[in-house]
Amino acid sequence: MESGPAIFAGTTFALFGAGLLLWTGARVLHREPVALGVRPSVSLISATLSGVVFLALGVWCFGRM
């Protein structure tokens, strides 16, 4: 019963993190801005770091089951 919320949270975090990393990679490959109004290096670093953190949180939630 307690693993239900961990599965949901882990799936949500992992999907969001993977999606953010894929989206950031696609934007960089097409040489388009990752975030409007922000320096390209700052937006790339923050989006990549956020994607990695969310993906790690998803893996961590799955590990706690």
Score class of each variant (00 low, 15 high):
6 A>M: 14
17 G>A: 02
1 M>A: 15
50 S>V: 06
38 V>K: 04
12 T>C: 12
20 L>D: 01
33 P>E: 07
25 G>Y: 00
8 F>T: 12
22 L>R: 05
13 F>I: 01
60 W>D: 12
59 V>R: 10
27 R>S: 08
39 R>P: 12
5 P>E: 09
35 A>G: 05
3 S>Q: 13
62 F>C: 04
37 G>Y: 05
8 F>Q: 12
15 L>C: 11
43 S>P: 03
15 L>K: 04
31 R>Y: 05
49 L>A: 13
7 I>Y: 12
46 S>F: 10
23 W>R: 12
41 S>Y: 12
22 L>V: 09
23 W>Q: 11
4 G>S: 14
6 A>P: 05
61 C>W: 11
25 G>S: 01
33 P>F: 03
20 L>S: 02
27 R>G: 02
26 A>C: 09
53 V>Q: 02
19 G>T: 01
15 L>D: 03
26 A>I: 08
17 G>E: 00
52 V>D: 01
28 V>I: 12
1 M>D: 12
32 E>I: 08
63 G>V: 10
45 I>W: 14
3 S>Y: 15
25 G>M: 01
17 G>M: 01
21 L>Y: 00
26 A>S: 10
20 L>E: 05
31 R>F: 02
62 F>P: 03
27 R>V: 06
12 T>A: 14
18 A>H: 03
56 A>G: 06
55 L>V: 04
43 S>N: 05
14 A>C: 05
65 M>N: 11
36 L>T: 13
58 G>A: 05
42 V>Q: 07
